[in-house]
Simulated assay, not measured.
Amino acid sequence: MRTVFIFPAMEQAAVVALLDRLSPGQRHPWLMDGCLYGNLTSEDEYLYLDWEPEAVQGLSRACGRRPSWVLQVDVSGRVDGTVEVRRLTLALLTQGGIAMDDYSDHPWTADEIARDVVVDGLRFFDFRTHHERTRLTQ
């Protein structure tokens, strides 16, 4: 599984309502587009457990605070998932917020995702380039 972390500026209840519309009758996790599995996670000892300190600091700077909850979206490895991840992420960031993925520590804005911006050689959810770089350095 590949993972995207979405920190929307909207209220958590609005996120739940949107996910319920996208995935009627399916919660914990929400299953969207047949390949995205979303779970809300609140800040506790586990939310940032596997994060590098620099990534948490960058996220906190981008958000103006350390977010207390996140929508963690796992993407099935059996499909590409890029279109689905981008669509969901942009829907959740309409009022602002940040998304982060497994492939960089960059806090992505909706504008950067929509414009397909490249940061340090990677786009948002750019698993192909990341895997190619990893393969070349081994």
Rank of each mutant, 00 (worst) to 15 (best):
M100Y: 04
D101I: 09
G64Y: 02
A91R: 12
L47M: 15
L36E: 10
Y37P: 01
R65C: 12
N39L: 12
W51Q: 06
G25T: 04
M32P: 02
R87G: 01
T82A: 10
L92G: 08
S76Q: 08
P53C: 04
L36I: 11
D111K: 02
Y37G: 00
E112Q: 14
E112G: 03
G25F: 12
V83Q: 05
I98T: 06
T109S: 15
D101V: 06
L92Q: 08
E112C: 01
Y37H: 13
Y48V: 03
D80I: 07
Q26V: 13
N39M: 05
L36Q: 11
G64Q: 08
E112M: 08
A62D: 03
A99F: 05
D102T: 10
L93D: 01
W30F: 15
P107W: 03
L88Q: 13
I98P: 00
A91C: 07
W30Q: 11
Y103D: 11
D44A: 08
Q95L: 11
S42Y: 09
S68I: 12
P53H: 05
D80S: 15
Y103T: 11
T94R: 15
E43A: 12
I113L: 05
A55D: 14
A99N: 01
G81F: 05
G25R: 06
R86T: 15
D101N: 07
T82N: 11
S68M: 09
G96C: 06
H28N: 15
L92T: 11
G81T: 13
H106K: 10
S60Q: 08
A99S: 07
L88W: 14
S60N: 00
Y46C: 00
T109C: 05
V75H: 09
G77E: 15
D111C: 00
G96H: 06
V79G: 01
Y37L: 14
E52P: 07
T94N: 06
E43N: 04
E43F: 06
D44G: 13
S60Y: 00
G58Q: 12
D111H: 07
A62L: 01
V83S: 10
T89A: 08
L92H: 09
D33F: 14
G77W: 14
Q57G: 02
S104P: 03
H106L: 05
W30H: 14
C35T: 10
